[in-house]
Amino acid sequence: MKRLRVCSRSGRGAFPYTVLLDPSTFGDAALLDVGTTSGMVAAGTTLASASAHADQGDVSTLAAAKTYTDQHSGGGGGSGGFINDDPVGAGIVVLTAAATWTVLPAVSKAIPCATGHRVLWAPSFLRGGTAFTLDAAILKADGSVSRYVSTGTSSPGAEGYAPFCNNPAYKGIAGLRMFVIRAEEIDPDGNVTIAAAYIAPSIDPGDTSNHLYLGGGYDGYWLMWDVDA
């Protein structure tokens, strides 16, 4: 990696950065060290216009590397992606009988996205009861299921998403998941949505013991992060 050395006019206290910095950031002069070529760069000079002080090819490479660093670190010209980690705010969701897999719009997040972007997803919440099986799904633009996170297809796993398992003999260990978003998963507003889905054929009428805790004193989270935004 090319290094940009920054020092005072007197040359005292010079030290190299291992990250790429734009000389225009500094109000004083900066010393540009590119390969074996060194020279003074006046205050306000950008990397792209520094060809008078070093070989143009090296400067172009350095400028391109800076642009890449900015776009992937959240600095300079890049945003570092779009992330939503606000509480879901759905309260305590009481599940009722559902003979088939049912999407829960209240337990979902939608973020701006584009086809081909990578989205990280990480749920974090409490659940109670054992009469239901839980999964999550990336939705199509029309709100129907595109693919379940348990299988990556339009059919869920027999036991739902493994970390959501309701068998007390097992403990789920969740983490980040990454999905590459497809064209049919972008809605007319330019968003992609991931929602919880469940099946519960044996919940009796009046049984209110099967819960998802996503508010009401028990905040739940449904992190979504478009890392390519």
Rank of each mutant, 00 (worst) to 15 (best):
residue 159 E to L: 15
residue 160 G to Y: 01
residue 160 G to L: 03
residue 160 G to Q: 00
residue 160 G to V: 00
residue 160 G to T: 02
residue 161 Y to T: 10
residue 161 Y to S: 12
residue 162 A to L: 12
residue 162 A to M: 08
residue 162 A to D: 13
residue 163 P to L: 06
residue 163 P to G: 02
residue 164 F to S: 06
residue 164 F to R: 02
residue 164 F to M: 09
residue 164 F to G: 01
residue 164 F to C: 09
residue 165 C to Y: 13
residue 165 C to I: 15
residue 166 N to C: 14
residue 167 N to Q: 13
residue 167 N to S: 13
residue 167 N to M: 08
residue 167 N to C: 08
residue 167 N to V: 13
residue 168 P to M: 07
residue 168 P to C: 08
residue 168 P to W: 05
residue 168 P to Y: 04
residue 169 A to D: 14
residue 169 A to C: 04
residue 169 A to N: 11
residue 169 A to G: 10
residue 169 A to S: 14
residue 170 Y to N: 14
residue 170 Y to P: 01
residue 170 Y to S: 09
residue 171 K to R: 13
residue 171 K to E: 11
residue 171 K to Q: 15
residue 171 K to C: 09
residue 172 G to I: 08
residue 172 G to F: 07
residue 173 I to E: 13
residue 173 I to P: 01
residue 173 I to C: 12
residue 174 A to Y: 08
residue 174 A to V: 14
residue 174 A to W: 10
residue 175 G to T: 13
residue 176 L to Q: 10
residue 176 L to W: 15
residue 176 L to N: 12
residue 177 R to T: 12
residue 177 R to G: 11
residue 177 R to Q: 13
residue 178 M to Q: 15
residue 179 F to G: 00
residue 179 F to K: 06
residue 179 F to E: 09
residue 179 F to W: 12
residue 180 V to K: 12
residue 180 V to Y: 04
residue 181 I to C: 02
residue 181 I to M: 06
residue 181 I to F: 04
residue 183 A to H: 07
residue 183 A to F: 03
residue 183 A to L: 04
residue 184 E to F: 00
residue 184 E to G: 07
residue 185 E to W: 06
residue 185 E to P: 00
residue 185 E to I: 05
residue 185 E to M: 00
residue 185 E to F: 01
residue 186 I to Q: 01
residue 186 I to V: 04
residue 187 D to V: 00
residue 188 P to D: 00
residue 188 P to H: 01
residue 190 G to K: 00
residue 190 G to M: 05
residue 190 G to C: 05
residue 191 N to Q: 10
residue 191 N to V: 02
residue 191 N to Y: 02
residue 192 V to S: 10
residue 192 V to P: 03
residue 192 V to W: 05
residue 192 V to A: 10
residue 194 I to C: 06
residue 194 I to G: 02
residue 195 A to Q: 04
residue 195 A to P: 00
residue 195 A to C: 08
residue 195 A to S: 08
residue 196 A to Y: 06
residue 197 A to F: 04
residue 197 A to V: 08
residue 197 A to W: 06
residue 197 A to E: 10
residue 197 A to D: 03
residue 198 Y to P: 04
residue 198 Y to A: 01
residue 198 Y to K: 03
residue 198 Y to L: 05
residue 198 Y to M: 07
